[in-house]
Design a protein around this nucleic acid. Structure first.
Length: 474
RNA sequence: CGGGGUGUGGCGCAGUCGGAAGCGCGCCGCGUUUGGGACGCGGAGGUCGGCGGUUCAAGUCCGCCCACCCCGACCA
């Protein structure tokens, strides 16, 4: 049972987030440092996310498979940058069945290596290509500072791994999946994103180019919501993934990988939530509608429940919860379901029965409306669509309002304290490092959509041909 | 791993000078309630984070350890 109030978002965003996740029963802390238990309400949201993504993966020709959790240490060492990037975060198994193992086994931090190993075995000819496999699993990365959903030692995700005959084809795949993530984020989660390329410092260990969709959280910090990597021939060379082309010549494949994790649940919470609690997008919410019956006497109860049943039947197409608990008051239920972010509440009381109506309360806006019982399904459907659209618009507006175009570096320093900076940037790693040192803001992404032309780098003043987003990030 | 903080019923906390472990919420039972977080009465629930020390006596004083949270470095 939840406690009464949440800390305000403006007052302490981090505290607000932590308490909300616990009180809304999305997740709880596991017994091992940094681990997370995803509770049924949170997992249902994740299941709805996975369903929406999986649909899109299948529609773009991908199939699902499963690969082992344990990976020989030597596999990671085959790609130099990869092992360097991940070694500080590895959990390693050294004992099995009571015996010291000959070779330590890594608990997968990601599956490029073991999948590369298998692809080398499976791919012989250009006729075997492309290989388009996705995996739903969990991975382990030994994180120093954890936060429920956003960064946990073990997290759930999907990782897509594809192999292609040419670099061009692999690059197209990388872009395609970035588009899939952006489409999912905006149309299912109502989370607006910026698509772009990662800077050298931020890209995937062992890859050639990384792309991401970046979202602005309610405190204006940036969150990488999904990534898509072009791996070139790096892993193909490390694992000898070769095929014979039409001319009977051995060629290396080009590979990609792309992932989206339970972190996205955190994004939904932080983008849409308010001081009352969660606000969940109708397309993904575990419950789209909650019905709260209201009555005093036994006569009222039977009349109300009769109408409630009729309404319930007419709303069979929606994910619906009837809150018929006797031990709490309607007022308590209103607050409870608001905290849990249910998009639409239907109240049915004696006055409604009398009028043959129901009372609707939207989670995204204040106020109630009354509507006749007849045709309530169409109204609910239209209202959920409106809520979905309104949530995306509000989040877009927030992102726009908090994205700035500072005139000089002094102004840049100011704006990144509470927003994003969209600026000309020279692209030098050294310059990026200094910006981070001086402002705590990092290069989030170099947007795919560029205005063209050129300018001067916001920090060093050198010629710049691209604009980049700088922000404090999670 | 560096800096700061906190560990006392499920949760949030109080506990003075070392002298009988408390409060609020939640939980269980009964009754009254129910259109914005109801109320009364009666209950259950604790090796005070762990180990060691000082003392007639430790939640309280001392030492070590552990865990968690916040801020940094690292990361999806």
């Amino acid at each position: 049972m939840p406690q009464e109030r949440l800390p305000s978002r403006a007052d302490n965003f981090s505290d607000w987030y932590n308490q909300l996740v616990l009180k809304a029963e999305m997740a709880d802390y596991g017994p091992v440092r940094g681990t997370m238990v995803v509770r049924p309400y949170g997992w249902t949201l994740w299941e709805n996310i996975t369903a929406a993504l999986d649909r899109r993966f299948k529609a773009t020709g991908h199939v699902n498979a499963a690969f082992p959790l344990l990976i020989p240490m030597s596999f990671l060492q085959k790609e130099k940058d990869h092992v360097e990037g991940f070694s500080p975060q590895l959990a390693i198994v050294t004992i099995g069945g009571g015996e010291e193992l000959e070779e330590p086994l890594v608990v997968r931090p990601t599956s490029e290596t073991i999948i590369g190993h298998m692809y080398a075995k499976w791919i012989e000819s250009y006729r075997d290509l492309p290989v388009l496999i996705n995996v739903w699993n969990s991975v382990v990365r030994w994180e120093l500072r954890t936060k429920l959903f956003l960064r946990t030692t073990e997290f759930y995700w999907q990782e897509g791994h594809t192999a292609h005959a040419t670099a061009e084809e692999a690059k197209a795949e990388t872009q395609q999946m970035l588009e899939v993530y952006a489409d999912f984020a905006e149309n299912e989660a109502a989370v607006p994103v910026i698509k772009g390329r990662k800077s050298g410092r931020e890209k995937f260990a062992g890859g050639v180019d990384s792309y991401s969709v970046e979202a602005m959280m309610g405190d204006t910090r940036a969150l990488q919501a999904g990534t898509s990597h072009f791996l070139g021939e790096n892993f193909a060379k490390a694992f000898s993934i070769q095929y014979l082309n039409r001319e009977n010549k051995q060629q290396y494949v080009s590979t990609t990988s792309w992932g989206l994790s339970t972190r996205f649940v955190g994004a939904i919470i932080m983008v849409h939530g308010d001081d009352q609690g969660l606000v969940l997008p109708p397309r993904l919410a575990p419950f789209q509608v909650v019905i709260v019956p209201i009555y005093k006497t036994e006569q009222e109860r039977s009349a109300v429940m009769e109408q409630t049943e009729r309404v319930q039947q007419s709303l069979a197409e929606f994910r619906l919860k009837l809150d018929d608990r006797e031990e709490v008051t309607p007022g308590f239920k209103f607050n409870d379901w608001e905290m849990r972010g249910v998009p639409l509440r239907i109240e049915i009381g004696p006055k409604d029965v009398e009028q043959g109506q129901v009372t609707l309360a939207r989670r995204d806006e204040k106020g109630r409306i009354r509507a006749p019982v007849e045709g309530v399904a169409q109204l609910v459907s239209a209202t959920l669509d409106e809520i979905q659209a309104n949530m995306l618009n509000k989040a877009r507006e927030f992102m726009r309002e908090n994205t700035h175009d500072p005139a000089d570096y002094a102004e840049f320093k100011e704006v990144v304290k509470s927003g994003w900076a969209d600026v000309w940037w020279c692209g030098e790693e050294d310059c990026e490092a200094k910006i981070k040192q001086e402002t705590k803001a990092t290069n989030r992404v170099i947007p795919l959509e560029q205005p063209g032309g050129q300018g001067v780098c916001i920090r060093c003043g050198n010629a710049a041909t691209e604009r980049a987003i700088f922000a404090r990030a999670y």
